[in-house]
Design a protein around this nucleic acid. Structure first.
Lengths: 131, 131
DNA sequence: GAAAGTACGTACCTTGAGGTAACCAACGGA
DNA sequence: TCCGTTGGTTACCTCAAGGTACGTACTTTC
């Protein structure tokens, strides 16, 4: 078990292999379809809502807002409202957000660099590519 | 555009921010709900189907098989059948799989270690935790 | 001889992720 | 005066992710 309180002491860390561990939730926010891309985009620099929307191809405003809310709730992203004529909102990574984003950017970068090799392997193998 | 063939030259790498880039598919296999956990589990050592099933809390046999098929198709996981009485099947990371898994393990490990801090931040903030 | 373990495949059904579209409020510009 | 921009929210609907359950084929164990 993980992060047990019942025994009187907090676990020092989580265990993603445990179904009930709250780390599962955090992991799913971070590795969600749009969560990864938001973190990767904000890993480059601070961005406004519209900029994020344009940067991440295919996101709807709804999902972008929802993803940002989840990441903000976990303390990875900070939301700043610039009180201007049409109020502009800026998003940047927090200190902890910067650390997760570093891992995410590393993963994403690896995939981008090795994409040709992966694609080649796909066609070579007779295995079915589902999902 | 990414991995363009129409112009006569293969792009050297993908771009996850492009909706049509095939890296999106690979990324979603790797960061899928069970994909992350399978890679993390196999990052520790080679495992049989049943062992994976027991290790990863909450997976159904169906999803485990499906996830393994997708990861095998991308060339991250190698399937080995041991021709025994009830044929046993073993799964291990390929060389490229080992590299992605390293990133995934790093990310997962970071989350596990920082879980208490994240949970504390969640409660401190008034933001709504959705999804 | 019945039950259980191993490694799935498949049919069926539910849930929720996620898309579309409309609406809002405030302001600047034509 | 009406339109467009910014950053959303909300309602509605669809489709696929994913769970449950059962079948299979062969073997060991009780």
């Amino acid at each position: 078990m993980s992060t047990e309180v019942s025994s009187g002491l907090q676990a020092l860390q989580g265990d993603v292999f445990d179904v009930n561990c709250p780390s599962r939730g955090v992991l799913e926010h971070v590795t969600s379809r749009w969560g990864v891309l938001v973190l990767a985009a904000l890993g480059e620099r601070e961005l406004r809502f519209g900029e994020l929307h344009r940067r991440i191809g295919g996101v709807s405003q709804k999902m972008l807002a929802q993803t940002l809310r989840a990441l903000a709730a976990d303390g990875f992203v900070e939301r700043t409202v610039i009180p201007a004529a049409p109020p502009r909102v800026s998003y940047r990574l927090t200190e902890t957000g910067d650390q997760v984003a570093a891992h995410v950017v590393g993963l994403v970068g690896w995939i981008e660099r090795h994409l040709p090799a992966i694609l080649a392997a796909r066609e070579a193998e007779p295995a079915a590519a589902a999902s």
